[in-house]
Design a protein around this nucleic acid. Structure first.
Length: 281
DNA sequence: CGTCCACGTCTAC
DNA sequence: TAGACCTGGACGG
């Protein structure tokens, strides 16, 4: 489930289900390799925030004013569910137990998601394009000379240092909405098409408002989704009328077929770190 | 049955 | 820059 929109929806969900509840402990599914966090407080309340593709769960003591963070990433399938304690879903890996007999669980079929007790945001990730948009834009603009922006824009958009929260469906939908060759050097693409940076916020906000990616097993935990609206939003990713390649990192990149042949005419200096431009055919 | 694919990082050669 | 890490759904034989 997990790009920026889904992370924010997940944080919303955790806040909603934690509101008014008092928690007293945590338990871990032994199948998961990560250690169980040592809870510093006997009773606590829970709040949460999302930033890009990370989420922090804040454990606040009800006896002192101390707060203790746990950083989460969602991998490919992570999300939270709320349930009665003895009915934990099969792939629940970390469960916070409330004194009303319910639990809030991190559920993750593939177990690529992680938790890291005691940490807030990773230093390796930039500002959130949705919730810290101005900082996000400044961060990119002030670092355009970085060699990461030598790479094609469709590759750079997946770099979490500059585009925290943009993932495979968002990059496709963002680039599809810009009249730019997705194989162009990122630096030049952004200079010529600064709306790319705006769309990192706007397209993500749309996805968020629509209740997140209706892909695979993701369901909006906060309410209903309109499948038609989502289909209208999702114009490029997974659409059989589009073209696709494997990008340099092995991820499928979906893009407008108008660039299918034009990209072969580009200046291959953009690919200075590639041995063979035919890799892009 | 088997192969391919999936909203993402990580670390190791 | 490949694998590694995982489960499971879709689809082919």
């Amino acid at each position: 489930m997990p790009e920026l929109a889904e992370l924010k929806l997940t944080a919303d969900f955790v806040n909603e289900k934690s509101r008014g509840r008092l928690f007293t402990g945590v338990s871990k599914n032994p199948v998961h390799k990560l250690p169980q966090p040592e809870m510093p407080f006997g009773s606590f309340i829970i709040t949460s925030k999302a930033r890009g593709k990370e989420m922090v769960v804040y454990i606040e003591s009800t006896e002192t004013d101390e707060t203790w963070p746990i950083r989460f990433t969602m991998g490919m399938s992570g999300h939270f569910e709320h349930h009665v304690s003895n009915q934990a879903p099969k792939h629940a890996h970390l469960s916070f137990h409330a004194n009303d007999g319910t639990s809030l669980s991190f559920v993750d079929v593939r177990r690529f998601g992680r938790w890291l007790p005691g940490k807030e945001w990773s230093q390796d990730r930039g500002p959130c394009p949705l919730t810290e948009h101005r900082q996000f834009v400044n961060h990119v603009i002030h670092n355009l000379e970085h060699r990461d922006f030598n790479k094609p824009i469709h590759v750079a958009l997946m770099n979490q240092k500059w585009f925290n929260g943009i993932g495979n469906y968002l990059r496709a939908e963002i680039l599809y909405r810009v009249d730019v060759n997705p194989f162009m050097e990122a630096r030049l693409a952004i200079i010529e098409h600064p709306e790319i940076l705006e769309l990192c916020g706007d397209v993500t906000r749309q996805a968020y408002q629509l209740g997140g990616g209706q892909l695979y097993s993701w369901n909006n935990p906060n309410g209903t989704q309109d499948p038609q609206s989502w289909q209208d939003f999702m114009q490029c990713y997974g659409n059989e009328t589009m073209h696709k390649i494997k990008d340099i990192n092995g991820r499928t990149f979906w893009y407008d077929p108008v660039w299918k042949d034009l990209n072969l005419d580009q200046d291959w200096d953009y690919y200075s770190d590639l041995p063979n431009p035919n890799a892009y055919k």
